[in-house]
Design a protein around this nucleic acid. Structure first.
Lengths: 140, 140
DNA sequence: GTGTATTTGTTCGTATGTATT
DNA sequence: TAATACATACGAACAAATACA
């Protein structure tokens, strides 16, 4: 798994790390029970402070993506097993809120329901196609 | 147009103002050429500092939702007329990025393409239905 | 087993930028 | 403008776990 930090990007570094790990999980480059590098190792590779990586890991743990027990490293959680009802509900809520916000802005900009759904289909196809491809061609 | 500030909400106040004005434009409660209250008036109504409202207006201007010329107040822009090619492209890019991010997270959480699109349809229906209804039943 | 060195996540403090008054 | 509060990111030092001679 190779992460890349864009210092020109205005989004916080810990968020960039968090987003790319989520993307790696979605593409199944990271599978449940996979171990992530230590905060120091990853921080060294990325050229950032260990606290920045640590914050990204903590966020991912709070969101249910990672399991972290003491100093034994962080591993990828199995969402099917860790999914508590409230977490599933929270995730559904976040998805709905995000989609509504995007639809709202698209509408305010003069877009139509159909162009919004077309964009949603396009992105969904990309993401889930990559996910399917990753599970077969992955292994390096 | 009635705005409401939630001090318990962790999102910045200026962002809440910005989001609700965008929502009002989407629902067509605010129409092109409509005048917005002055920063002092709105700040007084909401009980916040005028700098906060001013920041929200500035963001909306930069995003193309508002026109602000000097001290003559802010008015709602007509996206059809103000839409420069680069702004249209930027808006499409923001929509695509947002949708891809949501799809990615849904995928990483074990969701499917179909459940994602179902959620998108649900939210789009709500937003665009409100928009259509707002243009006829608006006035309260 | 014991002691040391290394690696790990955590705690403290600091500097900078942003949000808001 | 000035001041306060919070978020981001960094650095030094700490304590728990591990490796190894």
């Amino acid at each position: 798994m190779i992460l890349h930090i864009d210092q020109m990007d205005q989004t916080p570094v810990y968020q960039q790390i968090r987003d790319q790990i989520v993307a790696a999980i979605a593409r199944e480059e990271l599978l449940p029970a996979d171990r992530l590098p230590s905060v120091r190792t990853l921080a060294g590779d990325l050229g950032v402070n260990l606290h920045t990586v640590n914050k990204a890991y903590a966020v991912l743990r709070d969101e249910g993506y990672l399991l972290m027990r003491g100093r034994s490293g962080a591993i990828v959680a199995d969402f099917g097993q860790v999914a508590t009802p409230e977490r599933v509900a929270a995730n559904a809520e976040r998805l709905a809120t995000g989609l509504r916000q995007l639809a709202l802005e698209h509408c305010a900009q003069g877009g139509t329901e159909e162009t919004f759904l077309e964009a949603a289909r396009t992105q969904a196809r990309r993401v889930f196609a990559d996910s399917a491809a990753g599970s077969s061609s992955e292994g390096a």
